[in-house]
Design a binder for these strands. Sequence first.
DNA 1: GCATAATATATAACAGGTTATATAAACCGT
DNA 2: ACGGTTTATATAACCTGTTATATATTATGC
Lengths: 166, 166
Amino acid sequence: MVEDFVRGKGYLTLGTRFKRIGDRLQADVQQLIDAAGLAVQTGQYPLLAALDEMGPMTIGDLAAALGVSQPGVTRSVGQLAKQGVVTVRRGSRDQRKRRVELTEKGRTLVADGRQTIWPLIETHLADICADTDGPLLDQLDALETRLQEKSLYSRVMETKEGNTNE
Amino acid sequence: MVEDFVRGKGYLTLGTRFKRIGDRLQADVQQLIDAAGLAVQTGQYPLLAALDEMGPMTIGDLAAALGVSQPGVTRSVGQLAKQGVVTVRRGSRDQRKRRVELTEKGRTLVADGRQTIWPLIETHLADICADTDGPLLDQLDALETRLQEKSLYSRVMETKEGNTNE
DNA sequence: GCATAATATATAACAGGTTATATAAACCGT
DNA sequence: ACGGTTTATATAACCTGTTATATATTATGC
């Protein structure tokens, strides 16, 4: 078999590898979101959660809070507005600014997520990362290995079955 | 100031955060590549390095070796072929397969990278990650903090000046 | 108080990742 | 040896990130 070249290159391919792990994690979380019947894109939950916890914000504030570029936020907000999850309106004092705010639907979405899947994600990811304490590369190895062995989704489902079903 | 929301959410935003760090690392490395006068995209160095070290491969083998999807490799190879860095030809025995091979230009590019910037990347990233040993989230905090304090590029440049210039 | 500079957001173009699906070649069973 | 299945790659459509640049509004200095 052809093996994992990126993994073997250590620090040299760290950027590629971080992105790869991030994609994998987001894909796994998306499964959970879908299974819970929540109509959101994984990548937009942070934006919604920020609005929920910090209140209405401008595009620029969101970009700063999320560590993402302003055009990225503009686009995300545009999509979320189209889905009716947030509203956008011009600032009253400064008309250059746009005030982004959760709609009722948006608040419900965040509340549902917080209740149903957030605890599962936290618990299981903490578990996956738990007993690794070495250097960063070792921890990445362990994380990737464990996600390959059993996806976050499978881990969550097993637990749920054990607890709530016959 | 608005602070870093993603960082504060711990495991919940791990996927987003991994991708963010990966983007940052790749951007930093791209600076080094540009400064060294190498005409490549950071993200494609792993592919080139794999071809260099493992010899000519098919699209599918590359996808497996790099841990990315087959369509992703098809596109990367297409771009690299356009730049004259790799050649692609049908397999002789199995005409479905495409054999991807470094050109002379490609081999030179890898050799140059290996000589000029790879050691710098390894050294400085290892250094940045060195004395952190705790749980994963702490290491991510440390990594992000250090990259914010001083970019990989700055770190490399400082070292070079100290060693090789007046 | 008007011209210029700065700021906030929008838009365009690109990167590189994904999934789903189409196409072409090879394999296989009868 | 031909029809159906499998396999390898290509293509399409989308996501989300980026940078560079345009537009609109506010702030400022003379």
